[in-house]
Design a protein around this nucleic acid. Sequence first.
DNA 1: CTGTCGATGTCAGTTGCTGTCATCGAGGCT
DNA 2: AGCCTCGATGACAGCAACTGACATCGACAG
Lengths: 188, 188
Amino acid sequence: MGRWEPDARGRLAKAALELYSERGYEQTTVAEIARRAGLTERTFFRHYADKREVLFAGSGDLQELFVRAVADAPESAAPIDSLAVGLDAVSEVFADRREYARKRQAVIMANVELQERELIKLASMSAALADTLRRRGVAEPAASLTAEAGVAVFKVGFERWIVAAEERDMAHLMRDSLDELKAVTAGG
Amino acid sequence: MGRWEPDARGRLAKAALELYSERGYEQTTVAEIARRAGLTERTFFRHYADKREVLFAGSGDLQELFVRAVADAPESAAPIDSLAVGLDAVSEVFADRREYARKRQAVIMANVELQERELIKLASMSAALADTLRRRGVAEPAASLTAEAGVAVFKVGFERWIVAAEERDMAHLMRDSLDELKAVTAGG
DNA sequence: CTGTCGATGTCAGTTGCTGTCATCGAGGCT
DNA sequence: AGCCTCGATGACAGCAACTGACATCGACAG
């Protein structure tokens, strides 16, 4: 037992998502989030760089998972197929978090600043994927373009998953989206 | 002759780019920008929504140009080819602004907040393109994926153009990038 | 000549965010 | 037990981005 209640970070993240949902991102002050978590504003900023970041704590792990899956894809796999492997891996971890993802996504979609933050997380993912592809021997600009395409598929697939019926499986939606992209770039 | 020096907006934009270049975005205050433009901080915020937006004044026009070109592409053109038409149109307007583009891009690349803003401008472009494609009869998710692919090509092509030798023409780089994307999504 | 109107100035206030120092309690060392 | 160190937190002061409200000025219409 520490001096304080455990998991300050988690409490802050929970309080933030609740308040952003209840009254909106802009109408919520950091002081309010901290108070609901039983902490002070200053402590909030020790755990999260800014008011937006509290919603994106898991993005580093997601990126790492995606990148690792692509890196570990069979050497024989074409660049676009190694990305498909990554999309599969990513889909797994979302399977049992659909409700949370929906709630979080609704908050983000309601505010432009949060969308900006999400976009740069995806851009970071794209950069990391491009780097991984380069290590797999893919030259530029193919590596960057493939990575961008992969993130585009993720974005579109994710949005479809969010609004889809409960039975629809994320991995399938990702595969469908990737096939659609292939079709459309083929001159479809 | 008005009561004040003309083109307050333009003066603010010029002053901002200068100061962001000289001492960096974060080290520049809005008051300083306004002072160099012979105005006050309050007036800055009447012309630009925030400190970042002053660098993105032209993005609306660019989006409109892109969208119009895609909309006006021959009906017979496949979605991806209508995008190619748009990329051509966009390339034209950049031809004689390479130095400005380089200076501006250097400022943006040096700061994450500015990158976030740039990304959401590109996302807005993607949404507008997807909308245009839908009007041309392209179904979802093909429309969104094609639009995302188009913006990806623009991003990669633009970056290559920025660092390329003076002779390298933007339209060519865009076409090359698009071809690379096609190759890589074909299973490379 | 006067009233309207748009662009700007002035000022006060909120909030995100940072630097600095104080405080507290857990666990190790003697 | 007594003491020390250390990490997490609190308290407080301060800067800068941004906003709302009101005043000012000069061009222009009538």
